[in-house]
């Protein structure tokens, strides 16, 4: 759990330090992809707590979800329908579920 937050902070630091910028045009797709990737990280932390962590599943889920979410947003934009809401809702719900699970796990650990 903590390692994930440290990773994100380190990544933020590196990202701000590196002189790389994405075109503002694709900013929407990137942010949807970030939600998907974020969900994957939480899922990985949860799986790790359960000792069910699988590198292959995690990697494919991480990149696959991010790509699919970005594509969904792109297709929605082309059709004029905000399809990215689907990605936001789906990954948002899973994010909170995973977080709730991790929270309960740590609380029960603390009470022991």
């Amino acid at each position: 759990m903590i390692i994930a937050f440290i990773g994100i902070i380190v990544g933020l630091g590196i990202g701000f330090y590196l002189p790389i910028t994405f075109p503002a045009q694709y900013s929407l797709y990137l942010s949807i992809s970030i939600i998907a990737a974020f969900d994957s990280i939480f899922g990985a932390v949860r799986a790790n707590l359960d000792n069910k962590f699988d590198t292959v599943i995690f990697t494919t889920g991480f990149f696959g979800n991010a790509f699919l979410a970005g594509m969904l947003a792109y297709i929605g934009d082309q059709l004029g329908v905000p399809l990215y809401y689907a990605a936001i809702v789906a990954f948002g719900v899973r994010l909170f579920e995973n977080f709730a699970y991790i929270r309960r796990h740590f609380i029960s650990k603390l009470r022991e």
């Binding site: 900013s27 990737a37 991480f62």
Partner: peptide, 12 residues
């Protein structure tokens, strides 16, 4: 992986 997410967030 968290580093990668952080990177993407920073870009955004």
């Amino acid at each position: 992986m968290a580093c990668i997410v952080g990177l993407l967030m920073a870009f955004t």
